[in-house]
Write a protein that binds this DNA or RNA. Structure first.
Lengths: 143, 143
DNA sequence: TATTGTTATACTCTATAACTATA
DNA sequence: TATAGTTATAGAGTATAACAATA
C-alpha cells in the first residue's frame, strides 16, 4: 500500500494554530483581554522575573514591544510601575487589584478554551500531543 | 503516582506555532517571500478557485485583505489580474513567470523548513501529530 | 561605559465600511 | 437588486534605532 499523503506538518501546525488562536482571541476579547495582555499577566503571576527584559523574554517579545503593552495596561489601571529602590534602573511591574481580577477572568476563559480544544481527545492523547509539539519546537529553537 | 502536570494544550500549541512560525517567516523572507504570499501562491497552484472570494477563503482571510496582498504581488510582477470574458465581474488571477519562480523557491524553503521541523520524529509520530492537530482544529472550527 | 527601560517611528497583517463595476 | 472586487481607513502587534536615566 502507498504511504499516506499528508500535508506538510508545518502547514497543519500553522493552520491549526491560526484556527485555535483566533478562537482564543475571541474568548479573551469577550473577557476583556488579548493574547499579549494574557501572556504578560500569566508571566507576572507565575514567573519570578527580575526585570522587564526577563519579562519580555518570558512573553517572547522585544523590550520595546513590552513597554508598548505595559503603557496600555498601566493606562487601563491593570499594572503599576515603580523604580526598584535597590537599583533604580529597574522598574518593578506589579498587578493592581483590577489586574488581578482581569487575570482571573482571563484564566477562566483560557481554561474554558482548553476544555473546548481537548474535547474528544483522551488525556493520553493530549499528553502525547504536548510531547510531540515540544519536540517540534525544540527543532527550531533560538533561530 | 500523581498525574503529570502539563501546561494547557492551547498554551503549548500557541508557543510551538509562534516559534515554528517565526522560523518559517525567516526562511520565507530569505527566499523573497512571506507567509501570506506563500499561502496565496500555493492556493493558486493547488486549488481550483473560481474567483477571489474562494481564494480568500482558501487562504483564510477576508476579500479586502486578499486584494491588499494581490496589489503588492501584482506590483512585484508575480501575478496578473484580468477580467473573465464570460463574467466580467470576476477577476482572473494568474501567475507570471516570476510568480512561478517565486513559488518554486518558496516551496523549496517550505520543504526544508518541514524537514527541519520533523527531525527526530518518526513518520508514524508525524502522522499521529497531524491527526491530533486536525481533531483539535475541528473542535474550534467556524467560530 | 554598561545596563535598563522609553520614545519615536514604521512595517505587516488584518479587518470593516463604503464604493464601483457588472450582471 | 445581487455579486465581485477595490478603495479608504483604521487598529493591533511587532520591530529597530535613538535616547534618557542610572549604575
Amino acid at each position: 500500500m502507498p504511504a499516506p499523503v499528508t500535508a506538510p506538518i508545518g502547514v497543519v501546525l500553522a493552520r491549526t494554530a491560526k484556527t485555535a488562536g483566533r478562537a482564543f482571541d475571541q474568548a479573551l476579547a469577550a473577557a476583556g483581554g488579548s493574547q499579549p495582555v494574557w501572556q504578560i499577566l500569566i508571566s507576572l503571576k507565575t514567573t519570578a522575573v527580575a526585570n522587564q527584559r526577563e519579562l519580555a523574554d518570558a512573553v517572547g517579545i522585544q523590550g520595546a514591544t513590552l513597554t508598548h503593552h505595559l503603557n496600555g495596561m498601566e493606562a487601563a489601571g491593570l499594572v503599576t510601575r515603580r523604580r526598584d529602590p535597590g537599583n533604580r534602573r529597574v522598574h518593578l511591574v506589579e498587578l493592581t487589584e483590577a489586574g488581578e481580577q482581569l487575570f482571573h477572568r482571563l484564566a477562566s476563559a483560557a481554561i474554558a478554551h482548553d476544555q473546548r480544544l481537548r474535547k474528544g481527545l483522551s488525556d493520553a492523547e493530549i499528553a502525547q500531543l504536548a510531547d510531540l509539539l515540544q519536540r517540534l519546537a525544540a527543532n527550531v529553537a533560538d533561530t
